[in-house]
Amino acid sequence: MRRIFFVLCLNFSVVLAFAQVQTGKASFYADKFDGVTTASGEKYRHNKLTGAHKTLPFGTRVRVTNLANNQSVEVVINDRGPWVEGRIIDVSRAAAEQLGFVNKGLAEVKLEVIDPGDGKTSDLGRPIDNVMVEEKEFYSFEIERLTPKGYGVQIGTYQELVNLMRLTENLKNSYKKKVTVQVKVMNGVKYYGLILGNFNSRAKAEQFRADILPKFPDAFIVEYNRK
């Protein structure tokens, strides 16, 4: 397996089509993220009714219903995520309290788009899982090949570059850390590992990993120059 690292910097705009209803698991932001800049540029506030979704345009208002107790709340999408498989939305702590799942941490929910705002399309009715991105998506790159030393924290591994690009912007805005991409070739297939930070000690990398575990429970330490 070859190990190649790049620094990836990008800016982009996305045009999306989306549906009205989606079901899946919801989680909520840890208190330590209060004040952190979201992907939309707004700061996360735990007492505001906001949420993170992978694809819905910023400003979309959705009704979230906890299927276990039928409690509902309306939130405005202003961030990207969640990036854990099976989860469809991260909500603020205030929203999680209204939904009644703060103690459990997760809830099975239904999302309903009630105000698509500027993202409104004529494609309402298709499942969100099948969301399509139009051919109007542009990226600018500044890429530098690296031979890094020290340690980083890997968030995930991706095959689709477009998923990598979307997440990169969110991570840069939220954590103010250098984002490094490791190219892995396994059995002739390329994979892209997304790594945050360049720490000079494992202890510092472990501390950062502990800070982000509430949002990225599968994150792990990478030693850049390990053979």
Score class of each variant (00 low, 15 high):
68 A>K: 11
198 N>S: 15
200 N>G: 07
128 I>Y: 13
91 V>D: 00
135 E>D: 14
62 V>E: 10
140 S>T: 14
164 L>R: 00
167 L>H: 10
93 R>C: 00
3 R>G: 05
42 E>P: 01
119 G>M: 06
149 K>T: 14
194 L>R: 14
175 Y>A: 09
95 A>D: 03
50 T>H: 10
171 L>H: 02
125 G>W: 12
123 D>R: 07
223 E>H: 12
218 D>L: 06
68 A>R: 11
43 K>Q: 08
145 R>N: 11
40 S>Q: 01
95 A>R: 03
69 N>R: 03
95 A>Q: 01
122 S>K: 06
107 A>E: 03
71 Q>N: 09
101 F>S: 03
15 V>M: 13
214 P>Y: 00
53 H>T: 11
131 V>W: 09
186 M>D: 08
20 Q>H: 12
204 K>Q: 15
78 N>E: 08
166 R>Y: 06
63 R>L: 12
180 T>F: 12
73 V>D: 09
99 L>T: 02
62 V>Q: 14
10 L>E: 04
182 Q>A: 13
92 S>M: 00
79 D>L: 10
15 V>P: 08
182 Q>C: 06
83 W>M: 03
56 L>T: 10
145 R>S: 12
31 D>H: 08
161 L>C: 01
56 L>I: 05
97 E>S: 13
18 F>T: 14
87 R>H: 02
64 V>E: 01
85 E>A: 14
227 K>A: 15
212 I>G: 02
213 L>Q: 13
91 V>E: 02
74 E>Q: 12
215 K>A: 15
52 A>P: 11
221 I>L: 02
30 A>I: 04
73 V>T: 15
216 F>T: 02
3 R>Q: 11
5 F>P: 13
45 R>N: 04
58 F>K: 10
203 A>E: 09
169 E>C: 01
201 S>N: 08
146 L>T: 04
15 V>D: 15
91 V>W: 02
46 H>L: 08
97 E>Y: 08
65 T>I: 08
85 E>I: 12
216 F>S: 03
179 V>F: 11
105 G>M: 08
210 A>P: 00
14 V>Y: 10
208 F>R: 03
168 T>N: 15
59 G>Y: 05
33 F>P: 05
213 L>W: 04
96 A>V: 05
135 E>Q: 14
54 K>Q: 09
152 G>D: 07
42 E>A: 07
116 P>L: 10
213 L>A: 14
56 L>H: 07
151 Y>Q: 07
109 V>S: 10
160 E>R: 05
202 R>D: 05
140 S>L: 14
210 A>K: 04
143 I>T: 15
93 R>T: 04
199 F>Q: 03
18 F>R: 15
173 N>T: 05
68 A>T: 06
170 N>D: 05
215 K>H: 13
85 E>L: 13
190 K>E: 10
47 N>T: 15
215 K>L: 15
42 E>Y: 11
35 G>I: 08
216 F>N: 04
147 T>N: 14
120 K>N: 13
82 P>D: 01
52 A>E: 07
50 T>M: 13
9 C>A: 12
191 Y>V: 08
